[in-house]
Amino acid sequence: MSQTLVVSGSPHVKSEHTVRSIMWGVVIALLPVFAASALVFGVRAIMAVLVTSAACVATEYVIQRFFLRQQPTVDDGSAVVTGMLLAFNVSIAVPMWQLVVGAVVAIGVAKMAFGGIGTNPFNPALIGRAFMTVSFPVHMNTWAFPREQLVSLGVDRPTGATPLGKIADALELGEPLSAIAAELPSHTELFLGTIGGSMGEVSALAVLIGGAYMLYRRLIPLETPVVFLGTLALITGVFWLFDPESYADPLFHILAGGAMLGSWFMATDMATSPMSRNGRILFAAGCGLLTAVIRLLGGFPEGVTYAILIMNAFVPLIDNKLRPPRFGKGAVS
């Protein structure tokens, strides 16, 4: 009878989900990709991931502590996710200082300037990447070959175009794909990731393992990656059926470039994707469509980054127009 009773509104029990458990869960899901990039690109890849993650965390801490004068919340893991994704999105050839600049832009401009976690309209890692692409085009478009100088920290290593880059070049020159078939990796190579490209985009297998983990932990909805990749496959498939000499097959498009990483880790970013299931399906379909359009018809060989960023801009509109189905609206009586 003596103790003071606590009064609060219902419910009085809470699920075990926390922002922290979600964000660190994504970090765990990113570990297979991390491992794959380390295996393919060597020590430098590990360095790059550590640098971007540390830079993101430090940026967020400094902004919260000294600019906003609030209790820093960097331990929730969201900055680490952004940092890792940023590193996975760029080439191994990018110098470290550029990575730090990218991280500062990703967290400072794309996230904190909009109010911090949950309020950023665009995916911070992709903004960071887009910023680096325009600012440092040379390094950003220099793609390293895998398994060369695994232990080297330098960037002076053999480089060349990515598989998607080669196809785009061929299309521009009017060469049939059969002519460069020998230069293109097989589907198995693409799946395992023993190819050139940015650090996290190479191994579809690693992304799938991470994605399966996130599905198991219910960190991402299944519909987003499935619809994203499905739409991409559908549109590239139509082109391929009409002209297999100029266009690669849909499986190639799914496995090559950033489609896997983008659809599983970036289009599913909670803050920048729609709230309703219907909305997410439309969002993912839009991402897939734009990716295909940019890859097949646009000037860039790769379009995942811009496809997702463009669709990010539509999220408020999608949220406003596509609402979850209401119980009782499809009434029986």
Binding site: T4, L5, V6, V7, S8, G9
Partner: peptide
């Protein structure tokens, strides 16, 4: 003196409708 401890959003409107 306080007889109970209120736990919830810092809003009089909500506390008032609660108890």
């Amino acid at each position: 003196p306080a007889k109970t401890q209120y736990q919830g959003p810092s809003s009089c409107a909500i506390a008032h409708s609660l108890y």
